[in-house]
């Protein structure tokens, strides 16, 4: 009884900021919503992507891709990924119409047969191009895809961050939870630790070299994924981000997939 009274008095006297009254879940969600709000309205962008896959023995394998993204209001974004390297898959292209909780729609273009193949999209946790990135790590991060919990504030590499935990709400995720370090200034993740279905620590993603584009949107130059269970790593280097290139829905349909190079 006494402690409850004291708490009330304390609240009345100090007038704690609103966030103190939020539950950790509410605060986690609020942070995710703020991330989403700040990263809304970009419309479309394109970027080059180079993946350097490295195994425990240090053997490297290179992938080169080009990516195009289209923002869709009230739904998941659309993306088109075109493969340039290795050369035997050159011209292969992956079209995704993502959704928050419903399965994504995905089509794969196989240039050898000029064939467009609708593919099953519940393979979210599988390796993307043999890398340590799963498809779900690279797809658009809608707020509704997770539930959240705020953990703490701390400093990460000298920058103030929020540390939150999020739990996939969509089916077929390979994770029970992800711990995310979010930069308080730019509201972008600096690090994510992935825990597998048995809740064992699986992978750590670190994001480097954030730059601001179109005076608003922050994108990393580099994403580094380390698999703690296998020792394999994938370095993903982004290049040539172009915002507002004028892409439309037409650039993300099955016809455009056949033209993608």
């Amino acid at each position: 009884m006494i402690s409850r009274w004291m708490l009330l008095i304390l609240l009345a006297v100090t007038g704690l900021p609103a966030q103190a009254q939020q539950s950790p879940e509410e605060r986690g969600l609020a942070i995710a919503q703020e991330m989403d709000r700040r990263d809304s309205g970009w419309g479309d962008y394109t970027a080059g992507m180079r993946m350097i896959l490295r195994n425990r023995q240090g053997e490297e394998s290179i992938r080169e891709l080009r990516t195009r993204f289209l923002e869709v209001q009230d739904d998941g974004d659309k993306s088109l990924i075109i493969f340039d390297q290795p050369r035997d898959v050159q011209g292969t292209a992956l079209l995704s119409h993502t959704h928050a909780l419903q399965p994504d729609d995905q089509w794969l273009y196989l240039p050898a047969l000029r064939r467009v193949k609708r593919i099953a999209s519940n393979n979210k946790s599988g390796p993307f191009m043999g890398s340590e990135f799963a498809y779900e790590d690279l797809t658009s991060q809608e707020v509704e895809k997770y539930s959240y919990k705020f953990l703490r504030e701390e400093e990460h590499n000298g920058r103030p961050v929020f540390v939150i935990e999020r739990y996939p709400e969509y089916e077929h995720s390979g994770y029970t939870r992800q711990v995310v370090w979010i930069d308080q200034q730019i509201h972008q993740p600096l690090q994510t630790v992935y825990h597998d279905r048995r809740d064992a620590k699986l992978k750590t993603l670190t994001l480097h070299g954030y730059q601001q584009y179109a005076d608003q949107y922050w994108r990393p130059d580099e994403m580094y994924m380390e698999n703690h269970q296998t020792g394999k790593t994938t370095r993903l280097v982004w290049s040539d981000y172009q915002f507002g290139t004028g892409l439309t829905d037409r650039d993300f349909d099955k016809n455009s997939l056949k033209r993608a190079r």
Binding site: H156, R159, G209, Q211, A214, Y241
Partner: peptide
């Protein structure tokens, strides 16, 4: 960013518009 450096955040200028 140097390869092994911690996260570098630099408010870089907008890059010049170049074709795709």
């Amino acid at each position: 960013p140097a390869a092994d450096s911690p996260a570098v955040i630099a408010p870089a200028p907008s890059r010049p518009a170049a074709p795709a």
